[in-house]
Design a protein around this nucleic acid. Structure first.
Lengths: 240, 240
DNA sequence: AGAGTAGAGATTGTTCAACAATCCTGCAAG
DNA sequence: CTTGCAGGATTGTTGAACAATCTCTACTCT
């Protein structure tokens, strides 16, 4: 083993440690408060249109107003809250135009990631697709148990992991925000089962295409998949 | 003119007024402080790696520490600052991997916007390309005056306006962040002239293709354009 | 009765001062 | 040269206070 190989291994190890440290470090009060609020919003406890009172939440979350406002800012930037000057923060109410906008971006990013996999296929380490497989199986299991919210969550994770294959920190961040906003839209839907059910099988199909390295066909399927999904969401939205 | 048409016109007017009000309203102390800092960073007064002291800046900007920290958060989300817990905020130091990441996203987004113009060509109102023309001419004028930083700015605006043709609020926001980060990279470059000069003519070429509605060729040109630009930036970066 | 208005009350925007927690520096000991 | 330990400096968080703005009620006027 050459010296440079040793160095390389050490470099890689140092990076993983640094990542661990960063993960532990990120425990400021503001971020912890933001975590709790984020879950409340994405899980629907705080429905679109709801106002978040400052004094009320300072008591519940046991943080000062300043810290709470910092948490608000964090979530505002993720698109999970909107500020109305001198009136407070609200859970945003997205409409059909937002659906179109969000899906346009999803199509652009996800399809490009899949198509781009063809170029870097050789350098992709084995087991890279495992998270996707886990998500597919989680969705199937949740469907059997009639837990449709969990199906939606697994579906989200599938797409997040799909983007993750590109190894682009900025794509990951963008996708995180896009999917969080999408979750806001799901909460105004009356029938989550109809919305999520068709995509359990399609996710598996997509996964198998990727596993078989048929990237071009996977990209084409994904494109149609997202068009259909957008259409379904728009219809459910208009029928609310 | 039918009643619904009148209503539609009124709705549109109401939206523009609402937008104006929102623009005037958005003068919170935090955003004003963020504006000043943003300019300092993008213009290079605060170089990559620099730390921003809180007490120092509260005196200079004449805002309280809490408000300043809110401004920090705003800029953090734009990628112009990074927080290190218990150590402060810094101007990030981007490296080659960031160049690759940023350009990958630029290619995906910008090329897709141009290609997508073909579908919605009929609904594009006349004069929609005017901002692009202005930017092209601004860059040409700045080049004649040897003001290469201004050339870079005009170039940025050209691409921002290009994305704007898609009418996607989220694409606009993402592009704003991407270009802001790109500016950070420019500051470690010794010879801005070599970096920007080739793209003055290419921007004009792109504009003329768009004007001639040759969208497919414009998309292909833009793709190569961005590949070349990435390569040039990477070389300049390695030679620093 | 209904439209418009003034003002009280509540909420947000911002500042300040203080304390706790953490990091960096320099120095001494092994 | 490394390790451990003060001391000082900086950030993280809190609570209180006041100003600015919004909302709602009650009142006046037509």
């Amino acid at each position: 083993m050459s010296t440079s190989e040793v160095d390389e291994g050490r470099q890689a190890w140092l990076r993983t440690v640094a990542a661990d440290v960063a993960r532990l470090d990120r425990s400021s009060s503001a971020e912890r408060a933001a975590d709790i609020l984020r879950r409340s919003i994405t899980e629907g406890a705080l429905p679109p249109g709801a106002q978040l009172s400052e004094i009320e939440l300072t008591e519940v979350l046991e943080v000062s107003r300043n810290t709470l406002r910092e948490a608000f800012r964090l979530l505002t930037h993720e698109g999970l809250l909107v500020y109305k000057l001198h009136r407070g923060v609200f859970v945003p109410e997205l409409d059909e135009r937002d659906v179109v906008d969000l899906y346009r971006l999803r199509r652009v990013l996800e399809v490009d990631v899949v198509r781009g996999l063809a170029d870097r296929d050789p350098e992709l380490p084995a087991g890279r697709l495992e998270p996707l497989q886990d998500d597919v199986e989680a969705a199937e299991a949740a469907a059997l148990a009639d837990r449709w919210a969990a199906v939606g969550t697994a579906n989200m994770r599938f797409h997040q992991h799909l983007i993750g294959l590109a190894d682009s920190a900025r794509m990951d961040a963008m996708t995180g925000r896009l999917l969080a906003e999408l979750r806001l839209l799901f909460h105004v839907i009356a029938t989550p089962q109809e919305l999520h059910e068709p995509y359990i099988a399609r996710n598996r199909g997509l996964f198998e295409l990727l596993e078989a390295r048929k990237y071009e066909q996977a990209a084409a399927d994904l494109h149609q998949y997202l068009l259909d999904s957008e259409q379904g969401l728009l219809e459910a939205f208009r029928a609310r």
